[in-house]
Measured scan of single mutants.
Amino acid sequence: MSIQHFRVALIPFFAAFCLPVFAHPETLVKVKDAEDQLGARVGYIELDLNSGKILESFRPEERFPMMSTFKVLLCGAVLSRVDAGQEQLGRRIHYSQNDLVKYSPVTEKHLTDGMTVRELCSAAITMSDNTAANLLLTTIGGPKELTAFLHNMGDHVTRLDRWEPELNEAIPNDERDTTMPAAMATTLRKLLTGELLTLASRQQLIDWMEADKVAGPLLRSALPAGWFIADKSGAGERGSRGIIAALGPDGKPSRIVVIYTTGSQATMDERNRQIAEIGASLIKHW
């Protein structure tokens, strides 16, 4: 068994979910400061990975656009189908120029040979490839089937209604394609530690997140040497930005962190900087 497989195998399969305990108010002060700096709502939650206990939260039950963070949930649904014998990671999917949508850096290079389901999930999570996400959504039956998958695992909040790139529209008070920080954190924890997926599929999902190549300016920029992070970022219209992550010291994950913001006029660089500063405070007061 590899070190990575050993790491995931040791994560307990508890489903406990406790009331908020504000253990590190310094980080919450930074979250509130980020709201002021961005002129926007910021949602934040931090869960203990083992117990599910809420360590910190701010606007945990307010809706925020999911943006590309939904791609982790999508690949979780795909892996669930693989575990059930309904899908194969090695199955090759062919597509055409007409299937390509905005921001598809991986799929646009494989119009001739197509891509396997495994490769599409990797592209969707590590590079946030939008066409890969749409092709994967098609394999499970579309956005409503992803919502149904989430409902079946106990998440009655998170919903996907549209395809890429329309799902990033982020209209105020529009519940389409949204989640809440508390719901997303709990669902991510179930996918990474629960019995919904096999150990091999849980390991595959966290491996894809660990290999994320487009979230460098966010939490990763604040991470000390030797820390572990597996994450997925998202960006949308109307100043929307977000990240979901499993992270921790000593090379293994010990907490789930979810950060969303929407409604800002700030630049992407400024949104990234504020999320990175929240991450720096989190690590400082770990």
Score class of each variant (00 low, 15 high):
Tyr260Ser: 01
Ala183Cys: 09
Ala124Val: 09
Ser221Asn: 10
Leu136Gln: 00
Asp207Glu: 15
Arg81Val: 05
Ser240Gly: 12
Leu135Glu: 05
Val82Cys: 13
Arg241His: 03
Met66Leu: 15
Ala222Cys: 11
Pro65Lys: 04
Glu237Ala: 13
Leu89Ser: 05
Thr69Ser: 05
Pro60Ala: 15
Asn168Met: 04
Glu119Gly: 11
Met184Val: 08
Ser96Cys: 13
Ile229Ala: 04
Phe70Val: 11
Ser254Glu: 14
Ala77Trp: 04
Ala266Gly: 13
Arg220Leu: 02
Val42Cys: 08
Lys232Asn: 00
Leu167Val: 12
Thr178Gly: 02
Thr186Ala: 13
Glu277Ala: 12
Asn130Thr: 01
Pro224Asn: 04
Arg238Val: 12
Leu79Ser: 02
Leu89Cys: 05
Arg91His: 10
Leu47Cys: 09
Leu160Thr: 09
Ala225Gly: 14
Arg202Glu: 08
Gln204Arg: 09
Asp33Glu: 15
Asp212Arg: 04
Thr178Glu: 01
Met180Ala: 11
Leu135Cys: 04
His24Ala: 15
His5Arg: 07
Thr158Ala: 05
Thr186Gln: 14
Leu137Gly: 03
Leu55Pro: 01
Phe70Ile: 05
Arg255Gly: 01
Met67Thr: 14
Ala235Ser: 09
Met115Cys: 06
Ile140Leu: 15
His285Asp: 06
Asn173Pro: 08
Gly239Trp: 01
Trp208Leu: 04
Gly90Tyr: 15
Gly90Thr: 11
Leu19Glu: 06
Leu38Asp: 06
Gln88Arg: 13
Thr267Asn: 11
Leu135Phe: 05
Arg176Val: 06
Lys53Glu: 14
Asp36Gly: 15
His285Cys: 14
Thr198Arg: 10
Ala215Gly: 10
Glu87Asn: 04
Glu56Asp: 10
Cys75Leu: 04
Lys144Leu: 10
Ser96Asp: 14
Leu247Gly: 00
Ser80Ile: 08
Ala16Val: 15
Met66Arg: 00
Glu166Gly: 12
Phe6Tyr: 06
Ile229Gly: 01
Glu175Cys: 12
Leu100Phe: 12
Ala77Glu: 06
Thr69His: 08
Arg162Gly: 09
Leu219Gln: 03
Asp161Val: 06
Thr158Ser: 10
Cys18Gly: 04
Ala266Thr: 11
Met209Leu: 07
Ser254Pro: 08
Asp48Asn: 05
Thr187Phe: 05
Thr187Ser: 12
Gly242Arg: 00
Ser57Gly: 12
Thr27Met: 06
Gly236Val: 01
Ser57Ala: 11
Pro165His: 05
Leu89Gln: 05
Phe228Leu: 07
Ser254Phe: 12
Ala276Val: 07
Ile93Thr: 04
Leu55Gly: 07
Leu89Lys: 04
Arg241Cys: 03
Arg59Cys: 03
Asp83Leu: 01
Ala276Gly: 10
Asp212Ser: 07
Ala170Glu: 08
Gly114Asp: 04
Asp174Ile: 02
Thr107Arg: 00
Gln265Arg: 11
Phe228Cys: 08
Pro165Ala: 07
Arg92Ser: 11
Thr261Glu: 06
Asp250Tyr: 12
Met153Ser: 15
Leu136His: 00
Asp83Thr: 04
Asn98Ser: 13
Val78Tyr: 02
Ala276Thr: 08
Glu175His: 13
Lys213Pro: 04
Lys252Trp: 09
Gly90Asp: 14
Ile45Val: 13
Gly263Thr: 06
Leu191Gln: 03
Ala170Arg: 09
Leu137Arg: 00
Ala245Gly: 11
Leu137Val: 08
Trp286Met: 07
Ile3Arg: 08
Lys232Pro: 00
Asp250Val: 10
Pro249Leu: 05
Ile243Met: 07
Trp286Cys: 07
Thr131Ser: 14
Leu223Lys: 07
Val258Gly: 04
Leu136Ser: 01
Lys232Gly: 00
Ile54Ser: 09
Asn272Gly: 05
Leu188Trp: 03
Met153Tyr: 11
Val257Leu: 09
Gln86Tyr: 15
Asp212Ala: 04
Ser221Leu: 11
Glu175Arg: 13
Glu56Val: 08
Glu61Arg: 15
Ser240Arg: 01
Gly142Glu: 04
Thr139Arg: 15
Leu146Arg: 06
Pro65Cys: 03
Gly76Asp: 00
Ala215Val: 03
Gln86Glu: 15
Ile283Thr: 07
His156Gln: 14
Ala215Arg: 04
Leu79Gly: 01
Leu135Ile: 08
Thr186His: 14
Arg238Ser: 14
Pro249Gln: 09
Pro65Ala: 05
Leu89Phe: 08
Trp286Arg: 01
Gln4His: 08
Asn173Ser: 14
Glu62Gly: 08
Leu137Thr: 08
Ala183Pro: 08
Ser68Ala: 00
Met184Leu: 07
Met184Ile: 09
Ala225Asn: 13
Gln37Leu: 14
Arg238Phe: 14
Gly43Ala: 08
Glu175Gln: 12
Ser254Cys: 13
Leu19Gly: 15
Leu160Tyr: 01
Glu87Gln: 06
Gln88Trp: 15
Leu188Thr: 12
Leu218Glu: 01
Leu38Arg: 05
Ile11Gly: 07
Leu188Val: 11
Asp161Asn: 02
Ala245Ser: 12
Met115Val: 06
Thr178Trp: 00
Leu111His: 09
Thr186Asn: 15
Glu270Asp: 14
Ala23Gly: 15
Ala235Asp: 02
Gly85Met: 09
Ile206Arg: 12
Leu38Trp: 08
Pro181Leu: 02
Val8Arg: 11
Met115Thr: 03
Leu47Gly: 02
Glu119Arg: 05
Lys213Ser: 10
Ile93Phe: 05
Arg220Gln: 04
Glu87Ser: 05
Leu247Pro: 00
Ser80Val: 12
Leu47Arg: 02
Thr69Pro: 03
Asp33Gly: 13
Arg159Val: 06
Leu223Cys: 12
Asn134Ile: 02
Leu160Ser: 08
Met268Val: 10
Thr107Ile: 03
Arg41Gln: 08
Ser68Cys: 00
Lys144Arg: 13
Phe70Tyr: 06
Leu197Ala: 03
Val157Ile: 07
Arg63Asp: 02
Arg238Trp: 14
Ala225Ser: 15
Pro143Thr: 06
Leu120Ile: 05
Leu223Met: 11
Pro217Gln: 09
Met67Leu: 10
Ala170Gly: 13
Asp129Val: 00
Pro224Arg: 06
Leu137Met: 12
Arg238Gly: 11
Thr112Asn: 13
Asp129Tyr: 00
Ser68Gly: 00
Arg91Thr: 09
Ile93Tyr: 06
Ala222Asn: 14
Val257Gly: 00
Gln88Thr: 13
Leu120Val: 04
Arg176His: 09
Gly43Glu: 00
Lys252Gly: 10
Val101Gly: 08
Arg176Leu: 10
Asn173Ala: 11
Ile244Leu: 10
Pro249Ser: 08
Gln4Lys: 12
His94Gly: 07
Asp231Ser: 04
Leu197Asp: 02
Leu100Ser: 04
Thr147Ser: 13
Gly52Val: 03
Asp129Glu: 00
Gly85Thr: 06
Gln88Pro: 03
Leu89Ile: 08
Ile171Arg: 14
Thr27Gln: 06
Asp161Ala: 05
Lys284Met: 10
Ala15Gln: 06
Met127Val: 08
His285Asn: 11
Leu223Gln: 05
Asp83Cys: 02
Arg63Gly: 03
Gly85Ala: 12
Leu160Val: 12
Ile3Val: 07
Val82Asn: 05
Ile244Val: 14
Asp250Asn: 10
Arg202Val: 09
Gly242Asp: 00
Ile140Phe: 11
Pro181Ser: 03
Trp286Leu: 09
Gly141Val: 03
His156Tyr: 10
Pro172Glu: 15
Glu169Val: 13
Ala15Arg: 00
Ser240His: 06
Ser221His: 09
Glu62Val: 09
Thr139Ala: 14
Met67Asp: 04
Ser122Asn: 11
Ala15Gly: 14
Arg59Gln: 05
Arg241Asn: 03
Thr267Ile: 11
Leu223Glu: 01
Leu218Val: 04
Gln203Arg: 14
Gly279Arg: 00
Met268Leu: 10
Leu223Pro: 02
Leu49Gly: 04
Thr158Leu: 00
Thr178His: 01
Ser2Arg: 10
Pro181Val: 08
Phe70Ser: 10
Glu169Gln: 15
Met180Gln: 10
Asn168Leu: 04
Lys109Ser: 15
Leu192Phe: 11
Arg176Trp: 09
Lys213Val: 13
Ala266Cys: 12
Ser57Met: 10
Pro224Gln: 06
Ala148Ser: 12
Glu166Ser: 12
Leu135Ser: 03
Arg81Ser: 13
